Simulated assay, not measured.
Amino acid sequence: MSSPDTVRADIPRKKRVVIKVGTSSLTYANGKMNLRFMDHLARQISDLRNRGIQVILVTSGAIGIGFPELGFKEKLSLLPYKQASAAVGQGILMNIYEHLFREYGHVVGQLLFTKGDAVNSKRYLYMRGTLSALLELGAIPVINENDAVTADEIKIGDNDTLSAIVASIAEADLLIILSDIDGLYTADPRKDPKAELIHEVPEFSRDIFRIAGGAGTSQGTGGMYTKIQAAEICVHSGIDMIIAKGSLPDVILHIMDGDNIGTLFKGENVHPQLKKRDVIIGTAVKGKILVDGGCRKALLDKGSSLLAVGITGIEGSFEEGDTVSVYYGDEELARGITHYSSGDIEKIKGLHSGEMAKALGGEAPYDTVIHRDNLLVMR
Rank of each mutant, 00 (worst) to 15 (best):
E232L: 11
K122D: 09
I228C: 04
G329L: 08
S305Y: 12
I233N: 08
N269A: 13
K286Y: 03
S132E: 13
G294S: 10
D117R: 03
M38L: 12
A151D: 13
G293S: 15
H271E: 14
Y366F: 15
T114Y: 03
G336H: 05
L78Y: 15
G116M: 06
I281V: 14
E363P: 00
A62M: 07
N95Y: 09
V88A: 11
G282V: 11
Y81G: 00
D259Q: 15
L162S: 09
G321T: 03
E200V: 15
L93R: 06
G71C: 12
I169R: 02
A364Q: 09
V107Q: 13
P193H: 08
V279G: 08
S247W: 03
V291D: 08
Y225H: 14
T161C: 09
P272Q: 11
I140K: 05
D152Q: 14
Q110F: 06
I176C: 01
I243P: 01
T59E: 05
I208Y: 13
K297T: 12
G216P: 02
G129R: 14
H106F: 11
L162A: 10
R277A: 14
Q229Y: 01
R296F: 04
E196W: 02
D367K: 15
C295Y: 07
I208K: 06
G321S: 04
T368I: 01
G222N: 00
G91D: 06
M356R: 05
D240K: 04
V142G: 03
Q229V: 03
K32G: 12
A308M: 09
G220Q: 03
R49N: 12
G361E: 11
R206P: 00
D10N: 15
P193W: 04
I252Q: 03
E171I: 01
T6A: 08
A215G: 13
V149R: 06
L137I: 10
A84P: 02
Q273P: 00
L174M: 07
S341T: 09
S168L: 09
F37R: 08
S3E: 12
L299E: 11
S163E: 02
H199R: 15
V324T: 03
I370E: 00
I181N: 07
N34K: 03
D367C: 03
L70D: 01
I165F: 14
Y225Q: 12
E363H: 13
F37Y: 13
G267H: 05
S247C: 01
A212F: 05
V88F: 01
P68L: 07
A167I: 11
D158S: 11
